[in-house]
Simulated scan of single mutants.
Amino acid sequence: MTDLKSVNKSPSKLLGALQQILPEAQLDVQSVLPEHTLLLLLIRDVLSQRHLDADTSRRVMDNPLYWILCWASGRVLAAYILEHPELVRGRRVLDFGCGSGVVAIAAAMVGAKEVIACDIDPLALKATAYNAALNACSVTLCDDFEAVRGPVDLILVADVLYDRANLVWLDRFIARADTVLVADSRVRNFDVPPYQKICEQDSCTVPDMDEAREFNRVSLYTASVQSNSAARGE
Results as ranks from 00 to 15, higher is better:
1 M>Y: 11
5 K>D: 15
6 S>C: 02
8 N>E: 06
13 K>T: 04
14 L>V: 06
16 G>S: 08
17 A>W: 02
18 L>R: 11
18 L>K: 13
19 Q>M: 04
23 P>I: 14
24 E>G: 00
24 E>N: 03
27 L>Q: 10
28 D>E: 15
29 V>C: 14
31 S>D: 10
32 V>S: 12
32 V>L: 13
35 E>A: 15
36 H>K: 14
37 T>Q: 12
40 L>S: 01
43 I>C: 15
45 D>S: 05
46 V>P: 00
46 V>L: 00
49 Q>I: 04
53 D>V: 14
54 A>F: 12
55 D>C: 05
56 T>D: 12
63 N>D: 11
64 P>A: 13
65 L>Y: 04
67 W>G: 01
67 W>L: 10
68 I>A: 07
70 C>G: 06
71 W>T: 01
71 W>Q: 02
71 W>G: 08
72 A>H: 04
81 I>H: 00
84 H>G: 01
85 P>D: 02
89 R>I: 02
90 G>K: 07
95 D>I: 03
97 G>M: 06
99 G>D: 08
102 V>I: 12
103 V>M: 15
108 A>S: 05
111 G>M: 10
113 K>L: 12
113 K>G: 12
113 K>N: 14
115 V>F: 01
115 V>L: 00
115 V>K: 01
116 I>A: 06
117 A>Q: 02
117 A>L: 05
119 D>C: 11
121 D>L: 13
122 P>W: 13
122 P>V: 14
123 L>H: 08
125 L>V: 15
128 T>I: 10
128 T>E: 09
130 Y>Q: 02
130 Y>G: 00
131 N>S: 08
133 A>N: 13
134 L>H: 02
135 N>H: 07
140 T>W: 02
141 L>E: 03
143 D>E: 07
143 D>C: 07
147 A>L: 13
149 R>C: 13
149 R>M: 12
150 G>H: 14
151 P>D: 10
152 V>H: 00
155 I>C: 11
155 I>L: 12
159 D>M: 00
162 Y>T: 01
163 D>A: 14
166 N>G: 09
166 N>W: 04
170 L>S: 06
176 R>L: 00
176 R>W: 00
182 V>F: 07
182 V>L: 05
183 A>D: 10
184 D>K: 09
185 S>M: 06
188 R>I: 04
189 N>Y: 03
190 F>E: 03
192 V>F: 09
193 P>I: 07
195 Y>W: 12
195 Y>Q: 03
195 Y>E: 07
198 I>N: 07
199 C>S: 03
199 C>R: 05
200 E>Y: 04
202 D>C: 04
204 C>K: 08
206 V>Q: 13
206 V>I: 14
207 P>Q: 14
209 M>G: 00
211 E>L: 15
211 E>I: 11
212 A>Q: 13
218 V>M: 05
218 V>W: 00
222 T>H: 10
222 T>F: 11
223 A>M: 08
224 S>V: 05
225 V>F: 10
225 V>E: 14
226 Q>N: 09
226 Q>F: 01
227 S>H: 07
227 S>R: 02
228 N>L: 11
228 N>W: 03
231 A>N: 13
232 R>K: 09
234 E>F: 02
